[in-house]
Design a protein around this nucleic acid. Structure first.
Lengths: 336, 336
DNA sequence: CCCAGGGATGTAAACGTTTACAAAGCGACG
DNA sequence: CGTCGCTTTGTAAACGTTTACATCCCTGGG
């Protein structure tokens, strides 16, 4: 139907050999200007496009980057992928996406690393926490790896300081005079290995309380499973305490949205009766007036993509720790 | 670093020819059971994995499906892609994602169709509205195409009846006794060609009003640009009318979230002072108590993926019109 | 006992590139 | 005028599969 032209066709028309055509098309040196122009001209006329499989079979270059995301569900990996995609589309790379929902998937990512490496030029791990399985990825991947959200030996990393950011979030509540501060955490299941992110954010929460001389109270920590429904359930649980919190720190905005809703179900006004601070700066956080810690998710994706491209090109890169500024909105106020 | 084994290695170890190995590995007929077992055994031992580029170079099969999404921003395409991905991961297909943000992208999708076809076995168009550019895709794509969200000649389609669903949404408000019903629309820009979805939903909105003998009032229709911020702005505009609406229908839940927030900024209680109905059944709709029209987005993705796989396998498929049930929650109530 | 037929296997040519190596052309310099 | 060296070009061998075709062997029917 659509006549595909090959390098051979161009060679025939221009009267040069396929080798010269190949060189001309790829801007390699040692081809006469006149020849190159003629080749490009004919290629244009024939609407030539290189056959990707053929060229990667021999060159090894696939112009594809493997992107491993924790799931296809929540906002965070999606936005990150959006940032990544915008860079790759520009640079001519495709993404090969795989999701990692369970701990077995994490194991099999490493086991099947060889097969993955064969199809990609580089690998981007989003919040994938390979570090709980292996100290270093050197032994598994044959290709440059950049990890978003964790430090990982053998990979470049782009991360935030979760502990510090969480601490500052809670400090914001402390500065407003709150003394009983709840935590809505995105804990992993009881059988999963502990995940770095919730772990670090919990440590930050406790750091802040300790620095303020406040006690750590287990009853004030509830699990929200990273979803808005989970956040709602978590607040419900916190409100059943004898002495319920006057403020809560949620490890994600999505959970915070559930908290906001649950608060209004209980007749509590935010921020008068309950202050709420989230984490992420979700797209809806601004319109819902949620105070939060901003992760520049899209930009992190952009930088991650740029980093992996640089590594593929043989450049050196530095690890990046991203700032997480506090964005004060209407969901937090002075303790009454 | 990682020793990759080829079909040749297996041939050498087993003592048969590469052709036989290839046949055995792919379960083709005419290979003795004993030989096949031996080959599989050795392949296992050598951790053999076929080189994807090599095999697709000669067979034409890429085990990749092109997925074209309208953008990487909102919830709808993301969730759809989640459904698609779950099927593809099972079936062994990869997705090659490209996003189409502008009208030019739509044009170049068709212009570069040849190059795309060479890298994929099938194509999935999500809300991509190629129909505004071309009557049929037969002439462009060499591969099976399935369109999500629009009817398109030359492609299988999986869609909803936007006009009917919008009509039923507005009828719900009418049944509650509302007489002044606003519309928050996801209109396209003034220079873009009219898009089928907002067009159809607007027609449904007007259908309902007309059937109820109510006038069509331009002032009651505001543009929300598919975002929550846009939704908030749209409500602000609607409230400036001389006779503001007592209920609004939003073409997406994300815009409805903005409307909910803007209402509370104006001191309006939902649903007492303002009824709000959305469209999509966004993940957050349940926790925010939003009445909405449910699009089973994930399942639509699943069906779309299954359809394209069936088409690749040479089967015939039927177009699917998906149900869009009303999900009544707490954001709509009797007119006061 | 011969031959047809069919299943199992091997041989080798694709597929469309890239790339090592050889060769040719040409000017400059001793 | 021969040779060296540089640029430009061509030849052909990869890359790792699939697949058309040939070959071989075995069985069963005549």
């Amino acid at each position: 139907m659509i006549p595909r032209s090959t390098i051979k066709d161009i060679a025939r028309v221009t009267g040069v050999s396929v080798a010269t055509v190949s060189r001309a098309l790829r801007d390699l040196p040692n081809v006469a200007a006149a020849t190159r122009n003629r080749v490009l001209e004919v290629a244009e006329a024939l609407k030539y496009e290189a056959h990707p499989q053929a060229s990667s079979l021999v060159s090894g270059r696939t112009w594809t980057v493997g992107v491993v995301a924790p799931h296809f569900g929540t906002w965070f990996p999606f936005r990150t992928m959006g940032g990544i995609n915008s860079v790759f589309a520009q640079a001519g790379y495709d993404m090969l996406i795989s999701v990692m929902t369970s701990a077995e998937d994490r194991r099999s990512l490493l086991d099947d690393a060889g097969a993955l490496c064969r199809r990609v030029d580089g690998i981007l791990l989003i919040d994938t926490f390979v570090s709980v399985e292996a100290d270093s990825v050197d032994a598994f991947f044959d290709r440059p790896v950049v990890a978003v959200g964790e430090q990982l030996a053998g990979a470049s990393s782009i991360a935030i300081d979760n502990r510090d950011a969480a601490r500052r979030a809670v400090e914001h509540l402390l500065e407003l005079g709150h003394k009983r501060i709840g935590l809505v955490s995105g804990a992993s299941g009881p059988h999963d290995p502990p995940m770095p992110v919730p772990q670090q954010r919990r440590l930050g929460y406790r750091d802040a309380l300790e620095a303020a001389g406040l006690p750590i109270i287990n009853e004030l920590e509830a699990a929200g499973s990273w979803t808005s429904a989970g956040g709602a359930a978590a607040l419900k649980q916190l409100l059943e305490c004898d002495d319920p919190p006057t403020a809560v720190f949620c490890m994600s905005d999505e959970m915070a949205f559930g908290v906001l809703r649950e608060a209004s179900r209980h007749g509590l006004l935010v921020p008068q009766d309950l202050s709420v601070i989230g984490f992420d700066d979700h797209d809806l956080a601004a319109t819902l007036g949620l105070t939060t810690m901003r992760q520049a998710v899209g930009e992190i994706g952009v930088r991650a993509a740029e980093t992996v491209i640089a590594l593929i090109g043989g450049e050196q890169t530095d690890d990046i720790i991203w700032d997480v500024p506090l964005v004060a909105r209407e969901s937090t106020a002075e303790a009454s």
